[in-house]
């Protein structure tokens, strides 16, 4: 973010923030929904974003930071344009998730937690996504991808630009 363009939501999104805050008996309850919005708008939750969001809630940045770090879905560093999160819990493990993870690492050339050099994909390995009937499975951005095989993984990765 450059210094000349201070980080802020455009007016429509600010209105949405106020709508969300009014839904709850205590406006601070809108913090998670607003952090989701902020991550969509700014790419990840930097310290600067934390400070901005804290201002929207009259909270301390420290409080926002404590919340951001508690949840797995908030990124504190830039992430790839796509996030691929393979489930490594029991049912997926039994269905061959470790093999799929190895395949993903090879294809993407990254370890878990890393982003490809071209900024295309961040690879994660996560706990049960509760779609164990389709194990092994993974989440790709907003979508669940089911019944994975190496060939299916290749096709999915090809679709990510």
């Amino acid at each position: 973010m450059s210094l000349t363009a201070p980080l802020a939501f455009p007016p429509e999104q600010l209105a949405e923030v106020h709508r969300l805050q009014a839904l709850y008996p205590d406006r601070r309850a809108a913090l998670l929904p607003v952090l989701h919005m902020a991550q969509d708008a700014f790419g990840y939750i930097s310290l600067e974003v934390e400070e901005y969001v804290a201002g929207l809630f009259d909270m301390t940045p420290a409080h926002v930071h404590e919340v951001v770090t508690f949840y797995t879905m908030f990124f504190q560093r830039p992430k790839g344009r796509h996030v691929v999160a393979i489930c490594h819990n029991l049912s997926c493990h039994l269905a061959g998730a470790p093999r799929i993870l190895t395949h993903l690492k090879e294809r993407l050339g990254v370890e878990v937690g890393e982003t490809t050099d071209d900024g295309r994909v961040t690879l994660l390995s996560v706990e049960c996504l509760c779609a164990c009937e389709h194990a092994p499975m993974m989440q790709v951005d907003d979508r669940y991808e089911f019944d994975l095989t190496p060939a299916r993984v290749d096709r999915i990765l090809e679709g990510l630009r």
């Binding site: 049960c128 509760c130 164990c132």
Partner: peptide, 11 residues
């Protein structure tokens, strides 16, 4: 908040 490993009914 369905999260118990092995559970997917609420989905």
């Amino acid at each position: 908040d369905e999260g118990e490993p092995g559970t997917f009914k609420d989905r």
